[in-house]
């Protein structure tokens, strides 16, 4: 399996899946390819977006891919603390920093949703703005979203928070994939690592990757990029 196949298969088997990333790792592009592969397999597609994260990602993807609107069409949007995201007419808009209120509103909206592909974006943005709320909202959010055969994908920047916070965040991930970068003389090398997945033979394996207009190309770490 190549890494995209691996992430697709792993997320279908167990959930939630955390995509840990850092600035420069082109996580938007990864999401685009992953969602494209996954969404047909689910009845509904839901995005829980904190602090305009989805609007940011969609804007970028639309500038890169002609079919970005198609890939994200008919998505249901829960927008937490939208600033510019109101333009996307979210199905539920929540404006508070209070983690318990946010979870209560999301839970009420979802009720017993099943067979849903759910993408959680911007938890890191929310955590930067309201650091005390992050550790409260995360377990509750995972509990509310991870019901039945739902597939939950969560993106999270790993460089912003302390090791303590990261350990808490990562402890909720059944699949854990890391998208990092290595910088050498103004050149960025992107690196993907499988930290945890049900495919044990792949765990702790790494690939460098580059983004082309049509696909992501992965190279085993031993190969020169």
């Amino acid at each position: 399996m190549d890494p995209l196949e691996l992430m697709t298969a792993a997320s279908k088997r167990i959930s939630p899946t955390f995509l840990n990333h850092e600035i420069g790792s082109d996580i938007e592009i990864v999401l685009y390819h992953l969602i494209k592969r996954l969404r047909e397999d689910y009845e509904d597609f839901l995005i829980v977006s904190f602090q305009d994260a989805y609007a940011s990602i969609l804007k970028y993807l639309k500038s890169v891919y002609e079919d970005a609107d198609e890939v994200f069409e008919r998505v249901k949007i829960i927008s937490v603390n939208p600033f510019i995201e109101e333009e996307l007419n979210p199905d539920l808009s929540i404006k508070t920093k209070d983690a318990e209120i946010i979870i209560g509103r999301i839970s009420g909206y979802l009720k017993t949703k099943n067979n849903t592909l759910t993408l959680v974006l911007g938890l890191d943005l929310y955590g930067v703005k309201y650091p005390d709320e992050l550790v409260v909202i995360l377990p509750a959010l995972i509990r509310v979203l991870s019901k039945g055969d739902n597939n939950v994908l969560v993106t999270f920047d790993v460089k912003i928070f302390s090791e303590d916070i990261l350990e808490i965040v990562n402890s909720f991930a059944l699949n854990l994939f890391k998208f990092g970068i290595e910088v050498k003389e103004n050149e960025i090398k992107r690196k993907f690592t499988v930290i945890r997945s049900p495919f044990l033979e792949y765990n702790l394996r790494s690939w460098y990757y580059t983004v082309t207009p049509t696909k992501i190309v992965f190279f085993p770490v031993t190969a020169e990029v």
Partner: peptide, 19 residues
Amino acid sequence: VSRLFGEYSARLLEMVIIS
């Protein structure tokens, strides 16, 4: 910044600078 790192990373950096 968004041309270089992507829109999401730009937003993330913006939030960190603000904080």
